[in-house]
């Protein structure tokens, strides 16, 4: 028997629902399973879903997985926002922050939340001071980090830097504004803000930069790279032709993504990165540019910054992937590849 084809599908993470036309019939998917929707179910989905996005024509068996991931992402985002919502009592805010913090251990969720949340908040709408206090009291460093970034000057500095760079590059006002908006949307601002935040913490160890060669402007990345890592010494590592991904989601404080490469064996076992009391989300994404660290344009480097000492598991990882002695205040890329 041939499985019925999906001709249209949409997901709403905020509602935890997906709609799909399968074999000519409309179905509603949610955590409890699938059912035929009522008229209002469809109406609510599109008008109350907060965010609905098309998901092409996946196979039926993939729908539940897509829905689950989308639901977790938005549950985390909402949890972070609830923590700042003065309409909610402290117990609710703290509970939702804890829930969000747990979900942020998944790097995909963390990346999504950083990209969406790290933008200048409307401080008249959000109670950031109390949110920070509650997050600190509940010992939720991932939440504290997010709140601290939006509460401080970092985002403003990043925005100003982008505008200044764009101006020097000859962008007009509208193009500058568009570039800023794009840089928020594609995660460059979030990644850079995280990098700056980590630099502000003297005992925070690792900085990993991963290039997003598809979306990020290489000139901008080079600029940020130079400004943030001027003292870092990096030697070129071996060349790799492909990439693979290993995600760490074991630790609550640290979430690391490795894009590695083929000629060496890839170990996909999630790594435990023990911060030994240092609480920091220490993964950052970075793309090299021709002006950065002497690498050729479009080559992607993985840099692990200094201060790896005291992170034994990272030490083993670094050895596995050819990183120089992590106890030294320098490291070399785990590898680089031609982006295209």
């Amino acid at each position: 028997m041939t499985a019925a084809a999906i001709t249209q599908a949409h997901v709403s993470g905020p509602l935890g629902q997906a709609l799909a036309v399968i074999g000519g019939e409309t179905w509603l998917y949610e955590a409890a399973g699938r059912r035929r929707p009522s008229h209002n179910d469809i109406q609510f989905f599109f008008n109350r879903g907060l965010e609905v996005r098309p998901i092409g024509q996946p196979v039926v068996s993939d729908l539940e997985g897509i829905l689950d991931e989308e639901t977790r992402k938005f549950r985390a985002l909402h949890g972070v926002l609830y923590g700042l919502d003065a309409d909610l009592d402290d117990a609710t805010r703290s509970r939702e922050m804890r829930r969000a913090s747990g979900l942020l251990a998944d790097w995909a969720v963390a990346g999504f939340v950083a990209c969406r949340f790290l933008r200048p908040p409307d401080k008249a709408e959000w109670d950031i001071a109390r949110g920070l206090e509650l997050a600190r009291r509940a010992d939720l460093p991932l939440i504290v980090r997010l709140y601290a970034i939006v509460d401080g000057p970092i985002l403003g500095w990043v925005e100003d830097t982008i505008r200044e760079w764009a101006s020097k590059e000859g962008f007009g006002a509208a193009a500058r504004a568009e570039l800023v908006a794009q840089s928020y949307a594609n995660g460059l601002v979030a990644a850079t803000a995280n990098a700056i935040y980590d630099n502000d913490q003297p005992r925070t160890g690792t900085l990993l930069f991963e290039a997003d060669t598809t979306h990020w402007d290489s000139g901008l990345v080079g600029l940020f790279a130079k400004q943030l890592t001027g003292s870092m010494r990096i030697d070129a590592g071996p060349s790799f032709g492909n990439q693979d991904t290993v995600a760490d989601d074991r630790g609550m404080e640290i979430s690391v993504q490795f894009h590695m490469l083929p000629t060496v064996e890839v170990h996909e076992t999630p790594a435990k990165l023990n911060s030994q009391g240092q609480r920091a989300l220490s993964v950052l994404r970075w793309r090299t540019a021709d002006s950065f660290l002497g690498m050729e344009q479009q080559q992607v480097g993985w840099a692990i910054r200094s201060c790896l000492s005291g992170w034994p598991t990272t030490y083993r990882w670094s050895g596995r992937y050819g990183i120089a002695n992590p106890n030294r205040a320098s490291a070399r890329p785990t590898g680089w590849r031609n982006a295209r």
Partner: peptide, 18 residues
């Protein structure tokens, strides 16, 4: 948000197949 015309067209298809 989905663009209104995109949203409307998609919603209409789900209603039609309901």
């Amino acid at each position: 948000a989905l663009a209104d015309d995109v949203r409307g067209a998609a919603e209409e298809i789900y209603h039609r197949h309901r």
